[in-house]
């Protein structure tokens, strides 16, 4: 085989790759659009009367996640699933955002940390690598870290809205998360960088709880909250 033939053959392989990337990008763009729409809906909880609308909002968001599911299914058809990590960078960011949104939704509904499997169900993807398009553990953890900063913001806004019990529950939740993340031995990568921001979220929430407790604002509501 001559040198030219070899390069011609290699080139056709490279063009095919480029086309795949192109296809993936198109689907990822639609995913980003859906993620933006979901975000707008979720941001409603920061409003004054936001908490009352949670059930209605959650219905709408779940509907949008239905769209996301079909979009992710379409994405999975654009390449062979053994090559997941080859193109990973292209959807990594949007997938982390969707994980955050799913986690936020689940938190608002049940005040629980969403499990990795539950996120996969919400997004309609597989939980294990062997089965196909799946959720990478680092992407899941990044999404959860985004949840922490969103919750620290929510704690502040819920005080403004007159809900003094919520920040305390959020504080418990974030403390548990913080404890969980401390169990991990993170490498010096982007996940580690994001984890380093968690302590500021913890601090922020503790300050809110502190402000409430020195004014006795937590006590009054605590009684009614306890079963």
């Amino acid at each position: 085989m001559s040198v030219t033939d070899m390069f011609v053959r290699l080139q056709s392989g490279l063009s095919a790759d480029q086309e795949t990337r192109e296809d993936i990008r198109k689907v990822v763009q639609t995913l980003e659009q859906s993620a933006r729409e979901i975000l707008i809906l979720l941001q409603g909880v920061h409003q004054k009367e936001g908490f009352k609308t949670i059930p209605a909002m959650s219905l709408k968001v779940r509907e949008h996640f239905g769209t996301v599911q079909t979009q992710l299914k379409e994405l999975a058809t654009k390449f062979s699933c053994e090559q997941y990590y080859r193109f990973h960078d292209q959807w990594r960011f949007v997938l982390q955002r969707l994980v955050f949104q799913a986690a936020f939704l689940v938190y608002l509904e049940s005040e629980q940390l969403v499990t990795r499997e539950a996120v996969c169900t919400i997004l309609g993807i597989e939980s294990g690598r062997e089965k196909g398009f799946h959720l990478d553990i680092e992407d899941y953890l990044s999404g959860v870290l985004n949840l922490a900063s969103e919750l620290s913001r929510l704690a502040v806004n819920s005080v403004t809205a007159g809900d003094y019990a919520r920040p305390i529950r959020i504080a418990t939740f974030i403390n548990e998360l913080d404890f969980g993340f401390r169990l991990l031995n993170l490498k010096n990568d982007s996940l580690r960088k994001r984890y380093d921001g968690l302590k500021y979220d913890v601090k922020k929430i503790e300050e809110v709880v502190y402000d409430l407790s020195i004014r006795g604002l937590d006590k009054t509501l605590k009684i009614s909250e306890k079963p």
């Binding site: 940390l113 499990t115 953890l141 548990e176 998360l177 969980g180 169990l183 031995n185």
Partner: peptide, 18 residues
């Protein structure tokens, strides 16, 4: 708690990967 248990399994997974 379930969260801590989950993070323990994440620890193993990440360590193995690294």
């Amino acid at each position: 708690s379930s969260v801590i248990l989950a993070f323990q399994s994440f620890q193993h997974e990440l360590d193995a990967r690294h």
